[in-house]
Simulated scan of single mutants.
Amino acid sequence: MITITDLSHGILRIPALSIEPGITTVFGPNGAGKTTLLSVTAGVILPEAGLILIDGSPPRSCEIGWVSEFPDRNILFERVFDEIAAPLRFRRLPMEMIEDRTMKIAERLSISRLLNRKMRTLSGGEKVLVALATALVTSPLLLVIDEADSHLDEETAWEMQDALRSNQPPYVLQSSQYQNIADVSDDHIRIHEGFVISRGMNQDG
């Protein structure tokens, strides 16, 4: 379980919040604090006050994957294979393991055909899927997706969700532009002006 206690950062004020394993979608108007919540939960930034634990450990001691709203801004390599393999190479894993894991995650996300393509030649939807593969290749405990569908049409956004569900880590925390994606998540959290104003769990999920 992810537990948040007495959290305060910028506009965000959350006295207590618990998030069960599964896919949780955070939604609300622009400026509500969605990205701040995702960032502190992922350990990208440290909260001004409060405590966040993921299965009893602070975020920065956990394996966490991150997919940003603008995948183009985080591209490090020219070729798709090298982009997906980058987190493994940074960990100095054996070459055979890197190739095996990269090939397997690409296959599971049905993007093997892209591995030898140049990143600059990909469509927006393809770049999001590559970013998702890059985040998942390390088998994270938590995957955070910060409105990666905000520049996608709804059909492509659902393709991303289908790919995510077929390769789902224990915890997924995402924000989305699409209400119907939130509706089919295991849990959803509505934020307004930094406060959690409602939440609801999908009893069928």
Rank of each mutant, 00 (worst) to 15 (best):
V80K: 00
F81D: 04
D82G: 01
D82K: 10
D82T: 04
D82L: 03
A86S: 13
L88V: 05
L88A: 10
F90G: 13
L93S: 05
P94E: 12
M95T: 15
E96W: 10
I98V: 15
E99C: 11
R101W: 00
T102Q: 11
M103C: 10
M103P: 01
M103R: 14
K104F: 07
K104Y: 00
E107P: 09
E107H: 12
E107V: 03
E107W: 10
E107R: 11
R108T: 06
R108D: 11
S112G: 03
L114A: 06
N116G: 12
T121Y: 08
L122P: 01
L122V: 06
L122A: 09
S123K: 06
S123P: 07
G124E: 12
G125D: 01
G125N: 07
E126H: 01
E126P: 04
K127P: 01
L129K: 09
A133D: 05
A133T: 05
T134H: 05
L136Y: 02
L136E: 03
V137T: 02
T138A: 11
S139G: 06
S139D: 14
L141A: 07
L142E: 02
V144W: 12
V144K: 08
I145T: 02
I145N: 04
D146Y: 08
D149K: 00
S150N: 09
S150A: 13
H151S: 12
L152W: 02
L152F: 10
D153G: 08
M160T: 11
Q161H: 14
D162T: 12
D162A: 15
R165I: 04
S166P: 07
Q168D: 07
V172N: 01
L173T: 07
L173Y: 03
Q174I: 07
Q177P: 09
Q177L: 11
Y178R: 11
Y178D: 00
Q179P: 10
I181S: 05
A182F: 05
D183N: 15
D183I: 00
D183P: 09
V184N: 12
D186F: 08
D186Y: 05
D187C: 13
D187L: 14
I189T: 08
R190N: 08
I191L: 14
H192Y: 15
E193W: 02
G194Y: 12
I197A: 12
I197W: 13
M201R: 15
M201W: 00
M201D: 14
Q203R: 15
